[in-house]
């Protein structure tokens, strides 16, 4: 008879843990050889990505607020201009206060690369590289690489066609992809460690134009997969940003190497 309450207790504990896993926490990814949608002349057969861990969801306002409180250098009224532009965390009611327009479970936006990088370091983590991000984001709900599926592309494109006037939903609301990660698409753009490695021509029609001098011996990156608009647009977005820059639709999540 006494076993039943114990069992129920364990069951409820498991459920709580499972529920907690739907937001926050880390997902292990096995890595492997991955072919980018970008034409990488130095890695035509793909890049080897070592196993790594990626945060399940983007960093939230609440998590970033904790960081700002314990690292006051990153308050918007104290951060140096060279590390964050003037609109850094502009959507918060105060330097260390969210207010009603910045809900705790929304992904944090208006963050610069330097701030995102500092946050991840404070968690003994780092930002994911572009390769790692692209690899994790190639999955849909069932498959690890859904990139050739037109339906996958259409769902991603649908996000681009929705206007930004609606408030951002909370993280974790989206269903998990095949790895268990959420919100890689459809919520916010995300910083990567090597955002400035996306050497693309500012006129994106010049696919692979040979201005070798501009990038020291290389032409601008082009896409090998013209149909992969999701990647194209993400690359265009990241390549338009400076490290101190921030936008209303740009957040981040962290990664760890085991």
């Amino acid at each position: 008879m006494r076993r039943i309450p114990v069992l129920l207790g364990m069951l409820s504990l498991t459920c709580t843990v499972a529920a907690a896993d739907s937001a926050g926490g880390w997902v292990s990814l096995p890595g492997g050889v991955f072919r980018s949608a970008l034409e990488l002349p130095d890695a035509p057969d793909g890049t080897r990505i070592p196993a790594f861990e990626l945060a399940r969801t983007p960093v939230t306002n609440r998590e970033f607020l904790d960081f700002v409180r314990s690292h006051p250098r990153w308050r918007r009224d104290r951060v140096p201009a060279v590390l964050a532009e003037s609109r850094y965390l502009a959507h918060w009611a105060g330097p260390a206060e969210l207010g009603s327009t910045a809900l705790p479970e929304q992904p944090v936006t208006w963050v610069s690369w330097f701030a995102a990088e500092a946050y991840c370091r404070s968690q003994n983590a780092r930002l994911p590289t572009w390769n790692e991000w692209e690899y994790a984001a190639a999955a849909d709900a069932l498959r690890r690489d859904a990139r050739s599926d037109p339906a996958w592309r259409e769902t991603i494109l649908a996000w681009y066609s929705r206007p930004s006037t609606q408030p951002l939903p909370a993280v974790g609301a989206d269903s998990a992809n095949a790895y268990g990660l959420r919100d890689l698409h459809g919520l916010v753009w995300e910083w990567v460690e090597d955002y400035s490695a996306l050497l693309v021509s500012a006129d994106n029609r010049e696919q692979g134009a040979a201005d070798s001098l501009e990038f020291c011996g290389a032409a601008a990156l082009s896409t090998s997969d013209r149909d992969n608009y999701a990647v194209l647009m993400r690359v265009a977005m990241l390549s338009s940003l400076e490290g101190a820059g921030a936008t209303a639709n740009l957040g981040f999540r962290c990664a760890r190497s085991p």
Partner: peptide, 15 residues
């Protein structure tokens, strides 16, 4: 001129 101005006007949101 190059790109008809496109290569000189690539602008991120809020810039």
């Amino acid at each position: 001129g190059p790109g008809g101005g496109a290569s000189s006007s690539f602008t991120a949101p809020g810039h």
